[in-house]
Computed example of a mutant assay.
Amino acid sequence: MSLTKFPLTLRVTVSGATPDEIRENARAQALSFFGLDAELDVISAEAESEEEHHDRYRAIVVFRRIA
Rank of each mutant, 00 (worst) to 15 (best):
V12C: 08
A38I: 04
E51K: 06
P19K: 03
A47C: 04
D55R: 01
V14G: 09
F63D: 15
S44Y: 00
F33P: 09
L3I: 02
E48H: 01
A67V: 05
A67D: 14
T9F: 05
T18P: 13
R58F: 03
Q29N: 14
A47K: 04
A17W: 00
G16E: 04
L10D: 15
A38M: 05
V14P: 14
P7A: 06
Q29Y: 11
N25I: 00
E24W: 06
G16A: 02
R58L: 00
V12M: 02
L10K: 09
G35F: 00
Q29W: 09
P7E: 15
L8R: 11
R65G: 11
L40R: 05
R65F: 12
E48S: 01
P7Y: 13
T13F: 01
D20F: 00
N25K: 06
K5E: 13
I43G: 11
V61Q: 10
E50D: 12
L8D: 15
V42S: 13
F33S: 12
D55T: 04
A26M: 07
T4Y: 14
M1Q: 11
L31A: 11
R11H: 14
V62S: 11
H53D: 15
L3N: 10
A30W: 03
S15V: 02
V62T: 10
D20L: 03
S32E: 12
M1Y: 12
R23I: 05
M1D: 14
L40D: 15
F34V: 03
A59E: 10
F63K: 04
Y57G: 07
A17E: 10
P7V: 03
A47T: 03
T4D: 15
L36M: 08
I66Y: 13
V42L: 04
I60P: 07
K5P: 11
E24S: 10
M1N: 11
S49C: 02
V12T: 10
F34T: 06
P19W: 05
R64H: 11
A17P: 13
A30R: 02
E51D: 13
E39M: 00
H54K: 04
S44C: 01
R23G: 14
V42K: 07
T9K: 09
A26S: 11
A28I: 03
S15T: 09
I66K: 12
A67Y: 15
T18Y: 04
V62F: 00
R64M: 07
R27K: 09
P7R: 08
L8V: 02
S2F: 06
I22V: 03
